[in-house]
């Protein structure tokens, strides 16, 4: 049973692909369209990978939406000075916010749900201020950085590095140990506080990278950029089979599968021509169904 549940997200992904390619007469799987889906999924997947580290510990990171906005705004602001500054500044913004989130959770002991929600508010306000209540255009030349090769390299690097860190290093093991049982992890010598800050730092760093990618893709840092992105990440991760409690069953694959599934769904529903008003409902039903089938009830003592 457990084995079956593990592969449910994969089955879901395959089912969605088969269903939509049948409905679109193969249009979905054309090379061009696959590239499109990739383009649309990159930011989501990288964002999900970052949050995976946080969720592995059983915490939440809901500040992603505004962080995407503010790091994008920083990238665009500094791109106007020197394009080379945009990426480092976006990433630094992400790291700084991650540090704040992590510190407030680990050392001030404020629950992550509260911390990251409050930070979400603060950053949204700052984004509006940073974009001068509007938007900052990117220099035209930088639009061409929205290039398949660059994005693919970044994505592959992020996935490889994250996979290695998450699966093979003490870092990943410690984080999952915290998710499985914080007290026992502490007694077995896991530096809990440090790990918590580190998880948010990674999440922030990758979200900063997303902010840059997003600005380069759209050519604009807008005051509404990233609004409700945190919910997209949460739904994608859960679709991909990520347990909210974290622990040993939290897998990095969830980020990739979930991100792809959401992008496929959005693209597929437009291709099929499902009425805009109904698209959300279809998403909602698929979401509930997927989680119902894949949720590992056995490994969770209490379902909250």
């Amino acid at each position: 049973m457990r084995g079956f549940k593990r592969i449910v997200p994969y089955i879901g992904l395959v089912l969605i692909i088969v269903l939509f390619s049948a409905l679109t007469g193969g249009k979905l799987l054309s090379f061009r369209n696959l590239k499109l889906i990739f383009n649309q999924a990159v930011v989501l997947i990288i964002g999900c990978i970052g949050v995976t580290f946080v969720m592995a510990q059983g915490s939440l990171d809901l500040s992603q939406g505004s962080l995407l906005g503010i790091s994008g705004a920083m990238a665009a602001t500094f791109a106007a000075i020197t394009p080379g500054l945009s990426l480092p500044l976006a990433i630094l913004t992400g790291i700084a916010v991650g540090m704040i989130n992590g510190t407030l959770l680990a050392f001030f002991k404020i629950p992550s749900f509260i911390v990251t929600l409050c930070v979400l508010f603060v950053l949204r306000g700052l984004t509006v201020i940073a974009t001068h209540s509007g938007s900052i255009p990117l220099p035209f030349a930088m639009l061409s950085l929205d290039n398949f090769r660059i994005k693919a390299s970044i994505l592959v690097t992020v996935i490889l590095a994250a996979y290695y860190a998450y699966t093979y290093t003490s870092l990943g093991k410690n984080m999952r140990a915290i998710g499985s049982g914080e007290t026992s992890a502490r007694y077995s010598g896991v530096p809990v506080e440090r790990m918590k800050v580190l998880a948010y730092l990674i999440s922030g760093l990758l979200c900063g990278l997303c902010g840059w990618l997003n600005v380069v893709r759209t050519g604009a840092a807008d005051s509404k950029t990233g609004l409700l992105f945190e919910l997209d990440i949460l739904t994608a991760l859960v679709l991909g089979g990520m347990p909210l409690t974290g622990g040993s069953s939290a897998k990095l694959q969830s980020a990739i599968i979930g991100g792809l599934m959401l992008a496929l769904l959005s693209n597929g529903m437009v291709l099929v021509g499902i009425k805009a008003e109904l698209q959300q409902a279809v998403k909602g039903v698929i979401f509930l169904l997927a989680v119902y089938l894949s949720f590992e009830r056995e490994s969770v003592v209490m379902i909250k």
């Binding site: 900052i136 050519g219 807008d222 950029t225 959005s266």
Partner: peptide
């Protein structure tokens, strides 16, 4: 949202639309 606007135009073009129209969120 700018990212959604770009994705929508991409998807609509991929859908085979003969023309697209948008109320852009910003000049940028």
């Amino acid at each position: 949202k700018p990212d959604n606007q770009v994705s929508n135009i991409e998807n609509l073009i991929a859908r085979g639309c003969d023309a697209v129209m948008i109320c852009n969120c910003t000049d940028a």
